[in-house]
Amino acid sequence: MTSQRTAIVTGGSRGIGRAVAERLAADGQSVAILYAGNSAAATETLNAIEAAGGTAIGIQTDIADETQVRAAYDQVEREFGGVDVVVNAAGIMILGPIAEFDLDDLDRMHRTNIRGTFVMDQEAAKRVRNGGAIINFSTSVKKLGLPGYAAYAASKGAVDAISSVLAKELRGRDITVNAVAPGPTATALFLEGKDPEAIERMSKMNPLERLGTPEDIAEMVSLLAGPGRWINGQTVYVNGGMV
């Protein structure tokens, strides 16, 4: 294991992904933020990391496009010498009942949440150095079974399967693979389209009676990306005890 570790964080320009990128940089890792299109948000995150004394670069990447993903990994290796940690925080959440769900929306979520994670992990399996970690993002809503969440929860159930299988496929390489399953977390992705009553109700679903913060989730990622070497092949629920 090298003294200077390098992390790739998808969806690293906003929300949980930004908190993860900032936390890993604060932990001393060089960070490459992969973002879909919001260059202003990416620049803001990079500036925040550098202002705090960290090292980071941004790479605009369609994570479901294997050619772009390979190019992004190549750039990170040129810049920092290798890849130790890959965090797949990018995701799309579209809600609606199964009977009325737009199948184009289903395909969009599948492309980012499943294919994007798969493509990133496929390359990570070839590139991550021994002693590294691959961290995918799942969701606590799989256990809750809330109406309207079927398509999203199904996409994240696939992420759980990818994570547990890849952990076994990397036998002998000292690389951990886990999925982090947040509960309701105060991000734009979660808050969008919800009325105050719904937000208040969901904040009371856990015994701590509050929404999670992006920093709460980043704390678990920090553990899995660094000292948490004996946690492997798991889906870790980070939700204040909701389920």
Rank of each mutant, 00 (worst) to 15 (best):
residue 2 T to N: 14
residue 2 T to M: 11
residue 11 G to H: 03
residue 11 G to Q: 05
residue 12 G to S: 07
residue 18 R to Y: 03
residue 19 A to W: 02
residue 22 E to N: 02
residue 23 R to D: 11
residue 23 R to H: 12
residue 28 G to A: 11
residue 29 Q to C: 13
residue 29 Q to Y: 11
residue 33 I to F: 05
residue 33 I to L: 13
residue 41 A to E: 12
residue 42 A to K: 02
residue 42 A to S: 14
residue 47 N to E: 11
residue 47 N to C: 02
residue 49 I to V: 06
residue 49 I to H: 05
residue 50 E to M: 12
residue 51 A to D: 15
residue 51 A to Y: 07
residue 55 T to D: 05
residue 55 T to H: 12
residue 62 D to F: 03
residue 63 I to L: 15
residue 68 Q to F: 00
residue 74 D to H: 14
residue 74 D to P: 01
residue 78 R to C: 06
residue 80 F to Q: 13
residue 82 G to W: 05
residue 82 G to Y: 09
residue 86 V to P: 02
residue 89 A to R: 00
residue 92 I to L: 15
residue 93 M to C: 14
residue 94 I to F: 06
residue 95 L to C: 03
residue 95 L to A: 13
residue 95 L to S: 10
residue 97 P to F: 09
residue 98 I to W: 12
residue 98 I to N: 11
residue 98 I to Y: 12
residue 100 E to W: 11
residue 102 D to L: 01
residue 102 D to G: 04
residue 106 L to V: 10
residue 107 D to P: 00
residue 107 D to I: 00
residue 108 R to L: 14
residue 110 H to P: 00
residue 111 R to A: 14
residue 113 N to Q: 08
residue 117 T to K: 02
residue 118 F to E: 01
residue 123 E to I: 14
residue 124 A to P: 06
residue 125 A to T: 04
residue 126 K to H: 08
residue 135 I to A: 03
residue 137 F to Y: 12
residue 141 V to L: 07
residue 143 K to Y: 10
residue 144 L to Y: 10
residue 147 P to H: 05
residue 149 Y to I: 00
residue 150 A to G: 11
residue 152 Y to P: 03
residue 153 A to C: 08
residue 155 S to W: 02
residue 155 S to D: 04
residue 158 A to F: 07
residue 159 V to A: 07
residue 160 D to M: 09
residue 160 D to W: 05
residue 160 D to R: 08
residue 163 S to Y: 04
residue 167 A to L: 07
residue 173 R to M: 06
residue 175 I to K: 10
residue 176 T to W: 11
residue 179 A to E: 01
residue 180 V to C: 08
residue 182 P to E: 05
residue 183 G to I: 06
residue 184 P to N: 06
residue 186 A to R: 09
residue 187 T to V: 05
residue 189 L to Q: 08
residue 189 L to E: 04
residue 191 L to G: 01
residue 201 R to P: 00
residue 202 M to S: 05
residue 202 M to E: 14
residue 203 S to Y: 03
residue 203 S to D: 02
residue 206 N to E: 11
residue 209 E to M: 10
residue 209 E to D: 15
residue 211 L to W: 10
residue 212 G to D: 04
residue 215 E to A: 15
residue 216 D to V: 02
residue 216 D to W: 00
residue 219 E to F: 01
residue 226 G to V: 10
residue 227 P to S: 12
residue 227 P to M: 07
residue 228 G to Q: 06
residue 231 I to D: 08
residue 235 T to V: 15
residue 238 V to P: 06
residue 238 V to M: 13
residue 238 V to E: 04
residue 239 N to V: 03
residue 239 N to W: 05
residue 242 M to E: 08
residue 242 M to H: 10
residue 243 V to R: 12
